[in-house]
Design a protein around this nucleic acid. Structure first.
Lengths: 208, 208, 208, 208
DNA sequence: GATGAATGAGTTTTCATTCAT
DNA sequence: GATGAATGAAAACTCATTCAT
């Protein structure tokens, strides 16, 4: 075990590789068979190792799932952060935020499915008040609130509570995942256009 | 019950009461400890009876959960339908829709938590394309789309895709539940006001 | 309960009727769904009463099954005894024994199926050394041995151990039930003729 | 095992040993307490392991019971096949068939008891028409019919339906198991001699 | 005489976790 | 680093039996 072998938290290359592989297999397992049936046996099978070996790399199931969560969140944040950074003004940033998010969802269905499943299970099991989730929400919402606030400061956006609006935008995006499962041939381009337009109307300053 | 008794579906008073009690206990159990840990043992414990007794009243776990689902949905639909029916025009209806939904969520936290948990588990286990869920979504979205379409026909609302907009409104509402768990002292009145304003801006027709 | 109400073992008419009805329903249940799934609930369902009521007429499941056993055995013995009594000599009686037995099996499939299932379960559960079964075997074998012995005394049959031969005849008959289940369109007339001929050759005295 | 491991069906030595041990314990359990009470808990207790361990080696109860069935059938077939192969003519083969079968029953009481119990339960639960059973019966009857047919072709046996006769011989043998349970001190040598003589008379050609 | 309700012991099965090798 | 084997706690479900009414 990590903690036993290297108290300084160092990890060997092989260990890191296995962890990454296990994270990947877990994502696929959860996306395909759901949280409930994504047992360690199933994950090990996909990774081509034994159940027991998992415990060499992760203290327990929870630690593995947490790593999955952190990995997906980080990955997603990077994916979207880059696109937004290139924009000229907050209005363009908001549009880029929506577009890059939906694009990510469209091109990372397994990841999104796994993410939603894990998040649900967390909200579920610990009554929603879990540290990880809280920070996740905060972390993911802050950049969006920043965009909105700067937009208001620059006179591009009208007056509204940035938190409520940020949450609504986030919710509109997060609702796409489940819908995609139900309606696999959903027209995402159209959806994107409509959403961009909707939040444009909802946020833009109306000149007197 | 049911399977052991007369096929005419007759139910005694005691049976109906126990079923209702079990539904209530199941809602509370799911809301408090989550779907996964809301075992029949846990539910029976809360109801003060034995596991075996549950099977006297329900054929299996699924039947119990289904009854919970139907009960909550029916209850919710009645709660909100009444308020919306009294409104004068689609714009007022949309406001009433938002207000009554958020009000319901605020005053029925356990029910909403249970509903979300059950819905998630369904999406999870059957790959998201389950009849019940599909109809649930459709059923809950249709009245909202109706309001939006009528608003457009009467020239009150601007041009937009009613389905996308309805889904966004729904998503904004559904996001409140999880947030409430994370931030128990969320100011719901403010949230409501903001949301009403946001979707008012997003939908109203701007005179030339 | 019988024993509580009438220590003299008297039974009311209604009680006797219900017992008979329950015996009949049990036979059908066992024949159709097998011993394992012929639960008291299933039997009660077929009788149109509740599980609890069964315990008014029978102390427990075992007593009910025993009554079924005794009833079927008695019924069968009467059915065959009559035909055999009419015969002129032991050779004719042996033929009549075979014919009436096979005929009974052909016309009482449910009864035979139930009988076999119950017998098996008994042999099964108590290691085969149960009083009922022992007597059953003895009772059913004695008349057959009598026929064989008289045949030998009258010089119609050759020398052989009557017990072994009786058992073989019985076994040949008892094997028909299971075969009928496997091969429903078995030609029983042919089977009868062959069996009669076989045991005729095996028992008849060959003149010097 | 099996489901958790490599699909090439590889088995370790320990696994094979445990499987064999579990098969043995299952045979004994069924022979002693009957199919109904031979629960996995009982079998595990006899094997000195936990219930859970059984599922490591067998996917489920059915797979375990099937392995028992196949093992016993194979064992029995080998035991008897050898003796019959050495015989000079069909009449001697028939005698060897009877003798080796009865000998097997005498020396493998638990195996025979278990075999009968399992077979019965199968007939019982699936309405008698199960593939396994059908093939079992066919497989076990065919060699016997072969002997009889060859005997007829060689003019050693008289005219009779080989199927009916084979079944009768089989039934006479199969009846010994239950009798042994009921009458533990049955004189099997005598029984064998009598049976051989009986079927000799019943099958041999009587010269004109 | 019978019902509706409940019990409690038992069944098979699943799975995260442990550990000797 | 990893495997094979096993554990033990929990799950859903079944059913004979009891009993107040």
């Amino acid at each position: 075990m990590r903690s036993e072998k290297s108290p300084d938290g160092q990890r060997t290359f092989v260990d890191a590789a296995r962890r990454a592989q296990l994270v990947r297999c877990t994502v696929e397992a959860i996306a395909e068979v759901g949280m409930r049936k994504a047992s360690l046996a199933e994950i090990a099978r996909r990774a081509g190792i034994t159940k027991g070996a998992i415990f060499y790399h992760f203290a327990n199931r929870e630690e593995l799932v947490n790593e999955v969560l952190v990995t997906l969140l980080t990955e997603g944040a990077r994916y979207m952060g880059e696109r937004i950074a290139e924009q000229a003004d907050p209005a363009a940033e908001l549009r880029a935020y929506l577009e890059s998010n939906i694009d990510y969802i469209a091109t990372h269905r397994a990841e999104v499915a796994a993410l939603v499943a894990i998040a649900m299970n967390h909200t579920d099991e610990r009554g929603g008040a879990r540290e990880v989730d809280a920070s996740v929400y905060g972390e993911s919402l802050r950049p969006l609130e920043d965009i909105l606030r700067r937009g208001q400061e620059q006179g591009l956006f009208c007056a509204f509570d940035t938190r409520t609006t940020a949450m609504t935008i986030r919710a509109a995006i997060d609702a796409i995942g489940p819908q995609l499962s139900a309606i696999p041939d959903l027209d995402l381009d159209r959806y994107t256009t409509e959403l961009v337009a909707l939040f444009d109307r909802a946020t833009k300053r109306v000149p007197a």
